[in-house]
Design a protein around this nucleic acid. Sequence first.
DNA 1: TTGACTTCACCGACCAGACGGTACAGTTAA
DNA 2: TTAACTGTACCGTCTGGTCGGTGAAGTCAA
Lengths: 184, 184
Amino acid sequence: MAPRRPSSRAKILKAAAAVAREAGIGHFSLDAVAARAGLSKGGLLYNFPTKSKLLEALVEEHLVEFEAELSNYAACSAGRPNALAASFLAVTRDQDYPQEQQPAGLLAALAKDPSFLEPVLRFNRQTLTRMTATASDPHMVLVAFLAIEGLRLTRLLGLDVLDASERAAAYAKLEALLAASTPA
Amino acid sequence: MAPRRPSSRAKILKAAAAVAREAGIGHFSLDAVAARAGLSKGGLLYNFPTKSKLLEALVEEHLVEFEAELSNYAACSAGRPNALAASFLAVTRDQDYPQEQQPAGLLAALAKDPSFLEPVLRFNRQTLTRMTATASDPHMVLVAFLAIEGLRLTRLLGLDVLDASERAAAYAKLEALLAASTPA
DNA sequence: TTGACTTCACCGACCAGACGGTACAGTTAA
DNA sequence: TTAACTGTACCGTCTGGTCGGTGAAGTCAA
C-alpha cells in the first residue's frame, strides 16, 4: 500500500486530476495523464498497472483529502449543535471553487465503472450516520445533508444554478437551520 | 424539427436510454444502441447523423418529459404556498426509482461533452427563479431546491445513502418546511 | 398504363484513429 | 550486481463515422 517512491505516485495523481478536469471525463486517457505528469506511458503503468488502479487511487485520494479537511473544521464546530453537519457545511462553503477545480476524477471513475464510487458511498453513509446520531432534530439534519450534497454535486456536474448571493444565502440559511434546529 | 417517421426516432431514443443505463456510461456506443433498437448502424446514423446529435436528443427528451411531469403535478399543488417547489418535490418523490431506472443518458451526454447539459442548466435556473419569485421565504426555497437536487443527483450517480425510511422522513420534512415557511 | 427517375429509409462493409496494455531494453541509485 | 524505475515500440480492440449500395414507394411524362 505504501508507495516506494511517493513522488512519482503523487505527481501522477495530480496530473490525473488535472486531466480529468481539463480534458473532460470521457477523454481521460493514460497517454494524456502520462504526458501531463511528464512521464512515459511505461512509467505510468509501472506505478499504476491498470487504468482501474489509477482511478481507484484517485477516488481514494479524494476521500482522504476530504476527510482531513472535514476534521480540520471539526475543532471550530465543536460544542455547537449538529457539529458534524456544521463542519460539513463549512467545508463545502469554503470549497466553493469554480467548476474548473472540481474533483473530476470522481466522474472519470464513474464513467469507467460505477462501482468505483462505492468508497464514496460508504463514506457518505458513515458521515450521515454520525451526523444524525447526535442531532436534536435528525430529520432537519437529513434535509441539510441533502442540500449540501445538492450544492456539491451540482457543482461537480456543472449544473450549479445559484449565483453568488444565492449561494451565500443558502449557506446562511442552512447554518441557521442547523444551529436552531429543534424537533418540529 | 418534426420527425417524418417518429417511430424509428422514438425507438432509438428508448434504446439509447436503455443502453446508457445497462451498459454504463462510458460504454455508450452507437453499435450497442443500434443493436438494441433492432437497427443497423447505418440506419441509426440515418436518423441521428452523429453521436452528439443522439445525445442532444436524449437530453432534450428527458427535459420535455420532466417538464410534462412537473406540470402534471402543478394542479395538485395549486394554491398551496410554494406551489412549484411542492410540485418539484412531489415529482421527485414519485420518481423514487431504483438506480437501474435513472436517466443515465444525461451522464452519457456529460461524458461526451459537459456542454450537452446546458439545456438542463437553463431549465433548472428557470425553475428555481419561478420557485423563489412567489415564495414567502425565498431562502427556505433555495435550501429546499438544493435538497431536492441532492436527492435527484445522488440517485442518478448511485450515491444515494438514505434508506427508505430516511427518504420518507426527508420528503415529509421538506414538505413541512415548504408548507410552513415564513421568513425567518 | 408504363417505364424512367427520384426520394426515403436503411443496410453493412470498411476505415482511421484512439486507447489500454505488453514486451523488453536501457538507466540509475544503493 | 541488483532492484527500482523509465522509455519506446508495438499490438489488438473498440468505435465513430463514411460510403456505396438496395428495395420499396411515389412521381410523372408520354
